[in-house]
Computed example of a mutant assay.
Amino acid sequence: MSDQDQQMDATNRFISLANELKDGGVPVHVISWSMLTAGAVYSTFSVAGNTGGLNPSGVDKVVDSFRDCMNQVQEARKAELSAAGAELENEQP
């Protein structure tokens, strides 16, 4: 399985777990911030291991990567919404 396929599978598993937590009564904003915190902890681990931390330039690199990812997700969402709107406009009454 390619890295991209593994990333998509892991992403879908995280979203599934988030939905389970939501369905179990955990507020969405709590889940979102928890995922951000977990991402920060694991990003630090992936670069520095258990014995180190990121210096300010390392933090900036991670933040820039998150910003790029967020922008990609927003562009994809806009495209999905635009396509869905176009489909609705093309439907016959």
Rank of each mutant, 00 (worst) to 15 (best):
M1W: 09
M1L: 03
S2E: 04
D3V: 00
D5I: 07
D5R: 06
Q7V: 10
Q7K: 10
M8F: 12
A10D: 04
T11Q: 04
F14K: 01
I15T: 10
I15V: 15
S16D: 08
L17S: 14
A18G: 06
N19Q: 05
K22E: 12
V26I: 14
V28H: 05
V28P: 04
V28F: 09
H29T: 15
S32T: 11
W33C: 13
W33M: 12
M35T: 00
M35K: 02
A38D: 10
A38T: 11
G39C: 10
G39Y: 05
A40H: 02
A40K: 02
T44Q: 02
F45A: 13
F45D: 06
S46R: 08
V47L: 04
V47N: 03
A48Q: 04
G49K: 00
G49S: 05
T51S: 02
G53N: 13
N55T: 13
P56W: 01
V59G: 02
V59N: 01
D60Q: 09
D60S: 14
V63Y: 10
S65R: 04
S65A: 11
D68P: 02
N71T: 07
N71E: 14
N71K: 13
Q72R: 04
Q72V: 10
Q74T: 07
Q74S: 15
E75H: 04
E75V: 09
K78T: 11
A79T: 12
A79P: 06
E80A: 01
L81M: 05
L81Y: 04
S82Q: 07
A84W: 01
E87D: 15
L88N: 09
L88W: 08
N90P: 13
E91P: 09
